[in-house]
Design a protein around this nucleic acid. Structure first.
Lengths: 232, 232
DNA sequence: TTATAATAATGATTTATATCACTTTTTTAT
DNA sequence: ATAAAAAAGTGATATAAATCATTATTATAA
C-alpha cells in the first residue's frame, strides 16, 4: 500500500493550484520537503480514518480521492471528491487535533504527506502563505456549506443533476466521463439511498437527458440538468 | 437604526474570545480602531444582505444575531446564531468578494464594523493573529458542516432535540431559557416547516421531555434529548 | 468454465413530513 | 379599548423517497 519515493519540490508541487514557487523561499520549501513522505495508494485504500489523531496534511500529486464522514452505523456521506493538485485535510490542520473526515483513494493515487508541524512553522514565518492557506480553507468551507444546503433543500432530481454537473464541470471538465465510484457511493454523494439514486439516473436516461451505460455517462442536455439543479 | 459611538479598543473587544490584547501590538490595535464603526441594531434589523459586496467583518460587542442563507424563494436556512464576543463574516473575508450569508439582529445589538482591508493588513504583519483567525474560520466551518450533515441525516425528533440542546448548551448555557426567535425561524434552524416543528415541540412537551410555554422552555429530561440527538 | 460473490436494477409498500386549509391566540396599532 | 395583523397551533391529505423483497447482471475466484 505505501511505498516511499524521493522527488524534488518543483516536481512534487508541479500541478499545485497555489504558486508555491513564488510563495515560498528556497529555505521554506526545504522545511516542507524535509519531512515529507510520498506515498502510493491503490483504489479503495483508506488514506486516513475519521477521528484518528491528525498528524499530516495531504497533497494529491496524482489521482482521485473521496472525502467522507460517517453519519451513523452504515450511513455515510461523501462530502467531496478531490483530485490532482489539491491539498486535503486543511480544516483539520487548525480546526482540532483529529481528522474530521475519512479519506479514501478511488483510483491509484500518489500523495504527499506533509507534517502539520512543518506546514504550521512555514505559515508562522510567511504571512502571504498563511493567508493563502486560510483562503483555501474558506473557499473549501463555502463550497461544502453550499453543497450541503443544496442536499438539504433540493429534492432528488435536483441533487442528482448537481451530482452529474459536479463530475462533468469540476472533476473531469468533460460532458462524457466514467463515474469513478459505484452506485452506493454516488448515492452517498447526494445524501440518498442506492435505490433512489438508480431510479433517478434511470429516469434521466429514459428522458434522454443523459446517455448512461453502466459507469459511462454522456450528458445529452446540459441545459435541462442546469434547470433541474436550479429548480431543485 | 445605525448610530455611531466612540469607545476604546479594550472596551470594544472586552468580551472577545481571542486574547486580542496579547495578540496585537498597540499599533495594530490602532489600525483596527482607525476605521472601525460601532453600530446599534434593533431586533429584526438586517445587518448585511447575502450577495451584497463584502466590505466589513463584524464583531458582536453585545447582542444576538442570526446567520442565514436563502435557499429559494421563501425558503430560508438559518445556519447559526451568534452572540456577544464573536466575529461574524470571517469566511466572506477571504472566501470571495460578496457576503455569503444574511445577518439579522434577533435582539438589540451593538456591533463593530471592521473594514476587511484593516483586518487583512493586520493579518499580513502579524502571523500569530493570522493563524488565530484561520483557526476561527476552520472551527466555524467544522461546526457548520457537522450541523448541516445532522440536518441531512437525522429525522425531525433528532433535529429538534439538537435545536434545543444548541440553545441550552451553546447559546445560553442554561436548561431554561426563552427562544429568541419565532416558530418559523426555529423551523429554519432545523431545515423543516413551521407546522412540523410545532408538532414535534408539542410532542416533546406532551411527553414531559420539556416544559414549553410560548417561547419559554425548560428542559426536563436532558438525557432523553441527548438520546434523541444521538439516534437521529 | 462454472460457481460465487458483488453490484445494479426493479416493483410493492411504508413512512416521515410537507402542504393545504383553517382556528385560536397573541401582538400591534389606531 | 377595539380592530387588524401576525404568530401559533391543529387536522386532513398528499407525496417524495426510504425500506423491503426480489431478480438480473457483472465481476471475481475456484
Amino acid at each position: 500500500m505505501a511505498e516511499l519515493e524521493t522527488i524534488s519540490f518543483e516536481k512534487t508541487f508541479e500541478k499545485c493550484k497555489l504558486p508555491l514557487n513564488q510563495l515560498l523561499t528556497k529555505e521554506q520549501q526545504a522545511i516542507i520537503m524535509e519531512n515529507i513522505n510520498i506515498v502510493n495508494y491503490n483504489r479503495k485504500d483508506t488514506i486516513v480514518k475519521q477521528y484518528s489523531a491528525s498528524s499530516h496534511v495531504y497533497y494529491i500529486i496524482k489521482g482521485t480521492i473521496k472525502v467522507s464522514s460517517e453519519q451513523r452505523k452504515g450511513k455515510n456521506l461523501v462530502l467531496k471528491i478531490d483530485t490532482t493538485g489539491s491539498f486535503v485535510g486543511l480544516v483539520s490542520l487548525l480546526g482540532g487535533d483529529s481528522y474530521n473526515f475519512t479519506l479514501t483513494a478511488i483510483e491509484n493515487c500518489t500523495l504527499a504527506q506533509i507534517p502539520i508541524a512543518s506546514l504550521k512553522s512555514v505559515m508562522l514565518i510567511n504571512n502571504r502563505f498563511a493567508i493563502e492557506i486560510c483562503q483555501l480553507i474558506s473557499r473549501h468551507s463555502l463550497f461544502l456549506i453550499n453543497r450541503l444546503s443544496g442536499l438539504l433543500y433540493k429534492q432528488l432530481p435536483g441533487r442528482v443533476a448537481d451530482l452529474i454537473l459536479y463530475f462533468a464541470d469540476e472533476i473531469y471538465g468533460n460532458n462524457e466521463f466514467e463515474f469513478p465510484v459505484n452506485r452506493t457511493e454516488l448515492a452517498e454523494l447526494c445524501g440518498t439511498t442506492k435505490e433512489s439514486l438508480i431510479r433517478t439516473l434511470s429516469e434521466f436516461n429514459h428522458d434522454r437527458i443523459i446517455e448512461l451505460e453502466r459507469n459511462r455517462i454522456k450528458i445529452v442536455s446540459y441545459d435541462i440538468l442546469k434547470t433541474l439543479s436550479r429548480l431543485g
